[in-house]
Design a protein around this nucleic acid. Sequence first.
DNA 1: ACCGGTACTCTACAGCTGTAGAAGGAGGAC
DNA 2: GTCCTCCTTCTACAGCTGTAGAGTACCGGT
Lengths: 196, 196
Amino acid sequence: MTERMAALADAAIHVVATKGMRGLTHRAVDAQAGVPTGSTSAYFRTRKALVEGVVQRLADLDNAEVEEVGTTAPLDPDRLAEGIAHVLDQWMTTGRERTLARYACLLEATHHPELRGILAHGERPRAQAKAMLAAAGAEDPERQGRELVAFVDGLLFDRLVGAGALGAPTPGTPESRAELAQAVRAALRGVLGPRP
Amino acid sequence: MTERMAALADAAIHVVATKGMRGLTHRAVDAQAGVPTGSTSAYFRTRKALVEGVVQRLADLDNAEVEEVGTTAPLDPDRLAEGIAHVLDQWMTTGRERTLARYACLLEATHHPELRGILAHGERPRAQAKAMLAAAGAEDPERQGRELVAFVDGLLFDRLVGAGALGAPTPGTPESRAELAQAVRAALRGVLGPRP
DNA sequence: ACCGGTACTCTACAGCTGTAGAAGGAGGAC
DNA sequence: GTCCTCCTTCTACAGCTGTAGAGTACCGGT
């Protein structure tokens, strides 16, 4: 993906996050990116291509992020929860648009199977979760990893969408991170099962 | 809401579930409902009204369902998990379209605050969860209720979207319900905390 | 200077979408 | 019967969207 395409895809992600999939049109992306009308249409000839571009870009951004993080493996559940909570908090603040766009794309993939391959949703986090749980001595890391990812995903979604946010501290603050960490600890506790 | 509007709204829900918010147009609903072109446009004059109609209908259907269920309160966590798993399984099979439409609307509500009031997402389940946890002697039912709903919601979303479904049994089968129940037990365990 | 190619921009146009209002028609009051 | 009212259907039309192709500017090679 060329630099220009990436820029357009980024603008498209912003459009999806702020106006929804319905607002995702070639011209809207042009406007958002501040490029002359027709540019997006030239790089992503069809709308399908545009959507795929968005999905691809989301995947690329995620991959870049994962590589950046590396494979530090703190096995202490409490520290682990802190770490996950930190990431969640980022996804709710700085990365809010990306997260919203991702959820929109996931829903879209429901009726456009070809997107699923590109998105490969949650494969990376799921693998990470599995590895962590295996390291922590879980008996069925595969299943438990699925559960953990689902729980954490739900936490994120509910907050983002404003539902679970009522009564919860505003994201980005230390209180928010602390509260998130508490919830993540609960998820871990549940997934790991009654322990010795 | 008149019977005719309800029928149109139901058709609209089907459209949203199968073609996404983007496919929700007056004419598409007409076609789906098998009524002459222009009918939907007459009952929901603007697109905004149409979307609100969908959201309202979703809320109504939920309310009807809740009333039907009543307030049987089985306090045993295992039975509770079974019950929740059963409902989840229904939402993934019979009620799949409604569930998908609901998620689409939740995402939509992100940039259309007026929808939030109608949808009042999760208020009812959250209240139920809170009551159950309180009955089970939880120390902070409010927060724990939020957590439980988020976890369960995540479980549902991940499965629906096909991500967490890889490696999971196909919905509708007893195995699926059993596996769901196991996950829900994990969620309950995590939320309830280390117990005596 | 010329030329070929590449990257970008502009424009046209068919079809779809949102919205309004006119036309039709069933039924009830009188 | 006549009239009025409400429900339903039909039609028009402006604006938007997807898509294609022609036009233009830039750049490296010769």
